[in-house]
């Protein structure tokens, strides 16, 4: 077998120079690429282009706050993200339930976005929180909403000389009154999402909804979120008929292929559960922010904890 080149740059600038000269496959954690290019036991994976390993680039392996925005380096692993108190709750939830421990120590957020799988764990929360990707090349840097960057199944808006360097989160659970994240998988560990709903709501002082968001993964060719659907409830007080209206509209934007009715019903129940419980808690004055369960089906989530 003909061997391809493998670059192991030591700095981000070096990596960008290589990317500028050659259209290399960028490999971070390897949890997707090593599987999709694998051959049989004992054989080296077969790549059709040169590969550049960026797993250990220090510039893109840190999490920090810049003002109120959380910046996550593209090569940060799921474990680093799940354990960082700086990272917004929804993203931590998704990172903490991705694969199992060994995989979470390899898989990166940049890779999860670049893989552009509709079942990817992090895009749901990233869409929900209007996250942006920072993209660098030797020509400079640019930013783009994750929801625009992921064009469709396995297709991203990345030029051959560009690299994802950071994910930027302008919002967190602090910007909402109640939050919801629920992954339906076949088991607790190593589960690929059957469907995952991320939601958040904020009320105005008069009890009307001033912000509501919902995103679903594994329900179409990319993560689904629609401002039109969310606008149905914004400016109004939550009521059962209104919830059903939101559910029907959300049902209209998703297009699950396999097991469509199961996935649609999971979305309906998640939205109904979240909005009903949020309104109940608002009326009761309950400040417990996390709404994480289906009726009669409890899956514990990590509590909200952030640095003040």
């Amino acid at each position: 077998m003909e061997k391809v080149m493998c670059y192991i740059p030591k700095t981000l600038n070096e990596a960008l120079e290589i990317r500028n000269k050659e259209d290399v496959i960028v490999l971070a954690g390897g949890s997707d690429l090593m599987v999709s290019h694998k051959r049989t036991i004992g054989l080296t994976p077969k790549f059709d282009k040169s590969v550049m390993i960026i797993r250990n680039l220090p510039e893109i392996r840190k999490i920090y706050m810049d003002g109120s925005e959380c910046h996550i380096g593209a090569a940060c692993t799921s474990r680093e993200i799940a354990e960082s108190p700086l990272v917004p709750w929804h993203v931590r939830q998704a990172a903490s339930r991705m694969g199992a421990i060994g995989l979470r120590n390899s898989a990166t957020i940049g890779g999860n976005i670049a893989n552009a799988s509709p079942k990817g764990d992090t895009p749901g929360p990233l869409y929900l929180l209007d996250a942006r990707v920072k993209i660098a090349s030797t020509d400079g840097v640019r930013e783009e909403l994750v929801s625009d960057f992921i064009i469709k199944f396995r297709t991203i808006d990345l030029k051959p000389n560009e690299m994802i360097t950071e994910v930027i989160l302008p919002l967190s659970e602090d910007d909402f009154d109640y939050v919801f994240w629920h992954k339906v998988g076949t088991r607790k560990a190593n589960a690929i999402s059957k469907v995952t709903l991320s939601q958040a709501v904020k009320f105005a002082s008069d009890g009307t909804v001033c912000d509501y968001r919902a995103s679903a993964t594994a329900t179409g060719s990319k993560t689904n979120r629609s401002r039109d659907v969310e606008n149905i409830i914004i400016g109004k007080r939550i009521a059962p008929e209104l919830i059903e209206e939101v559910i029907a509209a959300f049902d209209g934007i998703i297009s699950p292929r396999a097991m469509p009715e199961f996935r649609r019903e999971s979305c309906r129940r998640s939205i109904r559960r979240f909005l009903t419980e949020a309104e109940k808690r608002r009326i009761e004055g309950c400040r417990d922010k996390v709404i994480d369960t289906y009726d009669g089906y409890y899956v514990p989530c990590a509590p909200v904890c952030r640095l003040s």
């Binding site: 954690g29 949890s31 390993i53 474990r79 060994g102």
Partner: peptide
């Protein structure tokens, strides 16, 4: 990366080396 039989520690973190190229 599903079964964990090959687990090793890389910089102190448990990983599955079936998913990791030597260069990493």
């Amino acid at each position: 990366g599903e079964c964990g039989a090959c687990s090793v520690l890389l910089n102190g973190e448990m990983v599955t080396p079936c998913l990791i190229p030597l260069g990493a």
